[in-house]
Nucleic acid binder design. Structure first.
Lengths: 134, 134
DNA sequence: CTCCGTGCAAACGATTTGCACTATG
DNA sequence: CATAGTGCAAATCGTTTGCACGGAG
């Protein structure tokens, strides 16, 4: 039975939620160390990974740079500062996106957007079907 | 006068274009090495960076670890295979996105999407204004 | 002839892993 | 008391950089 709720796991989760931010592993490490000084960075990484698999937090695979972890695991998009790399949640429903709306999101001045459609390519679909047969 | 067109730069550009794919630096390195065996990986990295700054190719800050470079520098979105990490261009105009349309893109089976709005956060806007005054 | 570009190796930052030990369920 | 989780250090992965040399303009 996986997912033991250890002390360090609980603290990692709690401190991320308390922060209300989209932190990187090492940013959170600094915070968590104040509560549990002997915790290791590897443990923070491992727990963030596990907690996001479990769905208790979200994992942000933001373009190119460090991963960030989201205290709010619900479905929502993000707004990203191209200068300081800060990330905020975007609570506008997709239907309501208008240039006006977006321009005022959280006081950001909008410079662009980045969209990736995610899916499974034809080749990988074939491979999956093969596996199913075994 | 920057941007000398060296042999290695030309080959890096040409082989990326020939591939018609969204390659990582090291994938392209393997290809380029066949034509110019003594080229170094660092040179491939440097040239991809310069070529994308110049606008001759595109740089994809796609989620995940490695950067990919796009033979097509024009404006367009991307579709991303969550299994093999392959990337394809998406030629549908934003206005035409419908679940139907997307479901048939390039034979992919769509699992989701990822949208990031890019901008400058309030704090960074303030900092910029300060700089302007100096 | 001047520098930009190159190759090489070493440095780097983020993340992961092998190991022996600890503590949860 | 079995075995998931931990701390630590070393390893790994993608990328960047310092340096002395080479070649484009």
């Amino acid at each position: 039975m996986p997912l033991r709720m250890t002390n360090q796991r609980e603290i990692v989760l709690r401190e991320l939620q308390k922060s209300k931010k989209h932190l990187t592993a090492d940013e959170l490490y600094v915070i968590v160390k104040k509560v549990m000084p002997r915790i290791s960075l590897a443990t923070v990484y491992r727990n963030l990974e596990i907690l996001s698999e479990t769905g208790l937090i979200g994992k942000l695979e933001i373009s190119g740079r460090q991963k960030r972890f989201d205290y709010d695991p619900g479905e929502h998009d993000h707004i990203y500062c191209v200068i300081c790399h800060r990330v905020d949640n975007l609570d506008i429903a997709h239907e309501d996106w208008t240039p006006e709306q977006l321009r005022n999101v959280a006081g950001y001045s909008i410079t662009g957007y980045r969209l990736e459609i995610l899916g499974i390519c034809p080749d990988c679909q074939k491979k999956q079907k093969k596996k199913e047969k075994i």
